[in-house]
Design a protein around this nucleic acid. Structure first.
Lengths: 392, 392
DNA sequence: GGTGATCCTGCAAAGGTTTGCAGTGAAGTA
DNA sequence: TACTTCACTGCAAACCTTTGCAGGATCACC
């Protein structure tokens, strides 16, 4: 404890007196139901009464107890957001977008981190279930069947995972991986590695599938390395393996791993992009700050957060839980629509990719060190990046 | 909407039938109170009954309704964590540490982001107040008096802000700023800028105070620039101003700003550390990944998160809110102890600082580009960084 | 057989709010 | 004046759980 210094003082302080609807009723001389209506259905109460009640409430510092309200209405006006790893810069923009969207609709967002642990994930859904009106599951690591099961406990919207029967928000990483591979093949790379992420990641499987197909189509060989932790450490740990594999280019599961890999290669004396090209996925802020600046597949994280919240709230207003008249006998099926939204991705070419062993000697490399125009693929570079938009 | 692709299907699915303690009671042929006790005081119920009840509960998929429980016990077993900006890499380690500490004590953490907005902050405290047992306020942007006022509504622990009468967890940025300035002075800098952060930040005031004193003591001149947004953008936006000010070294409010500043200076053709030295604060992961690697004041974020949770839970177990026997007449003062903990900081010297105009020519600069040993100040470099530990 | 202790369980109130229903008084209409 | 309509307000049940109190059964012991 040599590192800390503690000061302690004791003080007498007024206890927090919880002021309830009763106190307001007493103070303003009306029944509690009138006070209740003043807040939840103002048009039903006489304007004069209303102002009086509001004044008293303000005076006493009354705040409706949301827990008690939720108990009877069945809606908490909270939504839960379960995230694999807050420390991954991929998520904060998603979180912020979700929060601002929710706030506009008078909902609050509770964020929880699972440390990439499926068990923690399940536990959190249970814990959140009764305290929120719905849960956003971002990049879940549990099984599809478990997710389906949990969805009977609380409305769920899944991000970065396809679960049939549930609303999903997906990013077209398949298209992204294809663009990346085509970009690399176009640069003259014929031996490419895919640096995989977590085994249970939908994104991971999707990338693998698409990258494999694209490599085959382009006459290149794809080596799959992994699974790895989707972190900087996971990336740098794989550097040795990448060198030994003898590939001239790598597509990493995400930017964090790509950056870690570049660090690792650097430590081994392998230069990027001169000896090995590296492409990431996500386009996190950081990818513009490292040297070399990272070529990456940009994913629309903000849009994903907003869309997911919209879908959850829509589903939610359609079928309120705990509705008053719903007797046990009426527990028939509820008709509900589930949509799956696929968001497009864009290849952003920066400085971590360069010509490979089979490059045509004509075209000189044109990747200046200047300010980054954040150019999506296409303009000037003839990859098929913006080809046939989105598949199903 | 050309960027998205939507698939919609409709399905009939069993509605989520909320199973309550009643259902379990009926199924297992006991009174609801026995079921309740089975969960909250198992030693009070006959082992045979217990297993039967548990079996039924398991069967029906019963989960206690935490909201209803909270209504009567007055404790939710949740704590709230209010953060100025989740996108700032400074916070995730703190969040993770807080979560894991809370989990060990059977508490859940709800994180909320305020976007550096004091109004959102206040609103969030209100919204959280009745749904959590206490709130951790991290780097708050509201006024001390408002914080004190809010603390009467819900137990509060404040991080990175000193509020008398409230438990606080502070990082000794004063000491950090002093070490940084001494380091710079030692390198021969006599004209130094402090790139300030948000006006309402306690850290900001503290750094300003300490840096001013240290500069005076070292015979250097300190120019204060700001306030600025504590982000990468805030830093790069200040580059021009820094150049015009003619200083040879800058201490930035945090790493994000330092990195932004380096980018900005780079764009202006000013080299770091050859022409200008830059020091950050926080030691976020990113600071090891940029080029040049950042010299920075490391703050113990994980320890802060853990300590804050401990303090909150301790204060909380001492004086449970909404206790049964507490009539309105008994609302006398509650004796409560509030501690203030000061956590030590460390200067980490990397590659963004170099000799200044008044450097003694003898000592050559020894800062190789190799792997970063994460050396805290002291070893080999005669600054007063590890001088008189912590002040009061 | 009586006494007391021990163990388990049921009863019912409580916590803060919402809401269907019924009741009040006043205004409007014939 | 009698009747309808309307706007407003009060009553009380309901949401799901916890918990102090008391009752019933069992057992040991004298």
């Amino acid at each position: 404890m040599g590192h800390t210094h503690v000061t302690a003082t004791t003080s007498d302080e007024g206890a927090a007196v919880p002021v309830t609807i009763r106190d307001v009723a007493r103070a303003s001389g009306v029944h509690i139901s009138t006070v209740s209506r003043t807040f939840s259905a103002p048009h039903l109460v006489n304007p004069e009464t209303r102002v009086r009640v509001l004044a008293c409430a303000e005076d006493l510092g009354y705040r409706p107890n949301r827990a008690a309200r939720a108990l009877i209405t069945g809606r908490t006006h909270n939504i839960g957001l379960i995230i694999a790893d807050i420390a991954n810069p991929f998520f904060p923009p998603l979180i912020k977008a979700a929060e601002s969207q929710a706030r506009h609709r008078d909902y609050h967002v509770f964020v929880a981190d699972t440390n990439e642990d499926p068990t923690a994930e399940e536990e959190l859904v249970h814990a959140l279930a009764k305290q929120v009106d719905g849960v956003l599951l971002c990049s879940p690591r549990m099984s599809n069947s478990l997710i389906e099961q949990l969805s009977r406990e609380v409305p769920l919207v899944v991000v970065n995972r396809q679960v049939t029967g549930l609303p999903c928000v997906l990013m077209d990483v398949g298209q992204g991986a294809r663009s990346a591979i085509e970009h690399l093949v176009g640069l003259g790379h014929r031996s490419i590695a895919l640096l995989g992420g977590p085994r249970s990641s939908w994104t991971n499987r999707e990338m693998r599938r698409a990258a494999g197909a694209a490599a085959r189509a382009g006459g290149a060989e794809l080596t799959v390395l992994g699974p790895n932790a989707p972190t900087e450490t996971g990336g740098s740990a794989a550097a040795e393996q990448v060198r030994r594999s003898g590939v001239s280019a790598v597509l990493a599961y995400n930017d964090l791993m790509a950056i870690g890999l570049i660090e690792g290669l650097d430590a081994l004396g392998v230069r990027v992009p001169q000896e090995v090209s590296v492409v990431g996925v996500d386009d996190i802020t950081l990818s513009r700050l490292t040297r070399p600046k990272l070529t990456t597949v940009a994913t629309p994280t903000g849009a994903a957060g907003r869309t997911a919240v919209d879908m959850l709230l829509q589903q939610d207003t359609e079928s309120p839980r705990g509705a008053r008249g719903l007797g046990a006998g009426t527990a028939l099926g509820v008709r509900r629509t589930t949509a799956q939204v696929m968001l497009q991705t864009d290849l952003v070419i920066r400085d971590s990719t360069g010509p490979g062993p089979h490059a045509r000697p004509a075209r000189p490399l044109a990747a200046p060190q200047g300010p980054d125009p954040h150019c999506p693929a296409g303009p000037g570079i003839p990859t098929a990046a913006t080809g046939d938009a989105v598949a199903s």
